[in-house]
Design a protein around this nucleic acid. Structure first.
Lengths: 193, 193
DNA sequence: CCGTTTTTTGACCAAAAGGTCCAGACAGGC
DNA sequence: GCCTGTCTGGACCTTTTGGTCAAAAAACGG
């Protein structure tokens, strides 16, 4: 075994992810990536397959470290209303604390569908399906224990909550002010009130 | 006066708009535009300033012909609940009838903010502000005539409705199926029920 | 300390990007 | 029918794009 890489591969993916996240796929050039990682061209292509590969890795990393990890924490919340509420608060908080206003990488990517492979599309759609399923499950749990009214439809309300979430993420990129995002979240919660 | 243009300028803007709408700014090349309009390079740069200019014109055309014209029609609806309801149904219908799944040009553009001039950003944010103001006005009217409960906050509910609308537009690009969009819209209407 | 094996480096490539330019085509006014 | 002004076509330009390559450098086993 003759040599180890001089750079941390996952660090490169992390930095690359942030560029794609902020600027989108098409608007990000390889040069941008070289600049932000400090790595050289040859090293990049020695370690990765190319732009698409880099994007995919970044997206998977985001999905695992941001969305999945947050949802895993919320799974352990006992009170279903609180679990849903915490989800929204988390989104609002992370939207408001990001001074780059990058929004959500998954949402951003879903509006770039036409430029991406089906593999990428699947990551995104699966993510939204899981979020929707999460909401649905929590609503059902709430109905079982009487904290959420039986009159509402779990599946359809879940989808509406996802849409609100997406809306918050989009408006958080600069269209509405910070205060508005929390207000929207609070209103969305009325759907399960 | 020696010669008229051989192409219809507004027709070129229309076709150009559709490409930007579908693929986004960065992913659309001048060659794409030449292909879709059938016009030649020299003619394009003789009639327009360049890519940015073309994009701006397309965006303004969309805003005027899609959003503004629809809102103008809704202004004349007497029943405020119905006006809001029709807005959502219109969005759902136009999302579902577009086989290209382009979504909403304004929403798409709002996720490309970093690549655009402030002038472009202003068009988008103004559009959303107007939609929000429309909802707010309708909610207030509904409360005055007793068809919408006094307990809800007009301004904040309006913002939540905008977020739902945006969510529908995003999910309509392929993440959720057609049926889901109408379901989301129906749930959103519960915010003013 | 020498070969082996991998990484690094930066030059290099073809293609595509956005944009310019001008020779020629064209329709008016005279 | 010619002159004038604009419009068209496409060659052309520079820069940037994503990607390749070969030579040099660096750690390890022997």
């Amino acid at each position: 075994m003759p040599w180890e890489k001089s750079f941390d591969e996952s660090d490169v993916v992390e930095k690359t992810m942030k560029v794609f996240w902020k600027k989108g796929y098409a608007a990000t050039s390889i040069s941008d990536i070289l600049d932000v990682t400090g790595i050289k061209r040859g090293s990049l292509y020695n370690a990765f397959d190319g732009k698409e590969d880099l994007f995919m890795r970044g997206l998977l990393k985001y999905d695992a470290e941001q969305r999945r990890s947050m949802m895993r924490e919320l799974e352990s919340v006992d009170d279903p209303r609180k679990a849903i509420s915490m989800f929204f608060d988390y989104i609002v908080r992370s939207s408001n604390s990001d001074c780059d206003q990058k929004g959500c990488f998954l949402v951003n990517t879903s509006l770039e569908f036409s430029q991406h492979s089906e593999a990428v599309q699947k990551v995104v759609t699966d993510a939204f399906k899981e979020i929707s399923a999460f909401f649905e499950k929590q609503i059902k749990r709430g109905q079982e224990r009487g904290s959420i009214p039986d009159t509402i439809s779990p599946r359809e309300t879940a989808k509406a909550l996802v849409a609100s979430l997406v809306g918050i993420r989009v408006m958080g990129r600069g269209t509405f002010g910070k205060a508005a995002l929390q207000q929207i979240a609070d209103q969305a919660k009325r759907l399960i009130a």
